[in-house]
Simulated scan of single mutants.
Amino acid sequence: MAAVATVAGGRRRGLSIDGAEETPEERVGRLITESPAVIFSRRGCCMSHVIKRLLAAVAAHPVAIELEEADELAAAAAAGGAGLPALFIGGAAVGGLEGLMGLHLRGCLVPMLREAGALCP
């Protein structure tokens, strides 16, 4: 899996499992469980940009992973086939922008982020 991750502070780091013992599905699953909040998206996705902006507005800075076309299936499968962008908070699939907005409008987003440890101090 070749992808680019952006972590808090805007730092970028490459992700690669070429030659590793993990399948792309295992790697995606591990990233979901290891990160309090993670977004999988396509490169240049405007919906992902909106998700990041809303999360930043509530003081959360998720790991953002831009996938290559070949790896999109693994992330989409982890999201229950919902497609990309796919947001996970505390290991739970939130969905895309609609799922995030639904949580925010119901007042559930900040408590969920707090419980997952995804809010910045």
Rank of each mutant, 00 (worst) to 15 (best):
M1W: 00
A2W: 12
A3W: 04
V4E: 10
A5K: 06
A5G: 05
A5S: 08
A5Q: 09
A8W: 03
G10I: 11
R11S: 15
R12M: 15
R12H: 15
R13E: 13
R13W: 12
G14Y: 11
S16T: 07
I17H: 09
I17Q: 09
I17W: 11
I17Y: 07
D18G: 15
D18A: 12
D18R: 14
G19N: 10
G19Q: 12
G19H: 11
A20F: 11
A20R: 10
E21G: 08
E21V: 06
E21Y: 05
E22T: 14
E22P: 02
T23I: 08
T23H: 08
P24Y: 02
E25L: 11
E26F: 05
E26C: 10
R27D: 03
V28T: 05
G29Y: 12
G29P: 04
L31Q: 08
T33L: 13
S35Y: 02
S35L: 07
S35P: 09
P36E: 09
A37Y: 03
V38L: 08
F40K: 00
F40R: 00
F40H: 01
S41G: 07
R43T: 14
C45A: 13
C45Y: 01
C45D: 14
M47P: 00
M47K: 03
M47G: 00
S48W: 02
I51C: 03
I51Y: 00
R53V: 14
L54D: 08
L54Q: 09
L55K: 03
A56H: 11
V58L: 15
V58D: 14
H61L: 06
H61S: 08
P62S: 13
P62V: 13
I65T: 06
I65W: 04
E66S: 14
E66N: 10
L67S: 02
L67T: 00
E68N: 12
E68K: 07
E69P: 00
A70G: 12
L73S: 11
L73M: 08
A75D: 09
A75F: 06
A76S: 15
A76I: 15
A77Y: 03
A77H: 05
A77I: 03
A79D: 09
G80K: 06
G81I: 14
G83M: 08
L84K: 02
P85Q: 09
P85K: 10
P85M: 06
A86W: 04
A86H: 04
L87W: 01
L87Q: 01
I89L: 08
G90R: 04
G90N: 06
G91H: 02
G91I: 10
V94G: 01
V94P: 00
G95M: 12
G95F: 09
L97W: 03
L97C: 03
E98Q: 11
E98F: 10
G99D: 12
G102A: 05
H104P: 00
H104A: 07
R106I: 01
R106H: 05
R106W: 01
R106D: 05
G107F: 02
C108M: 15
L109S: 04
P111F: 13
P111W: 10
L113M: 12
L113C: 07
E115A: 15
E115I: 10
E115D: 15
A118K: 02
L119Q: 07
L119V: 13
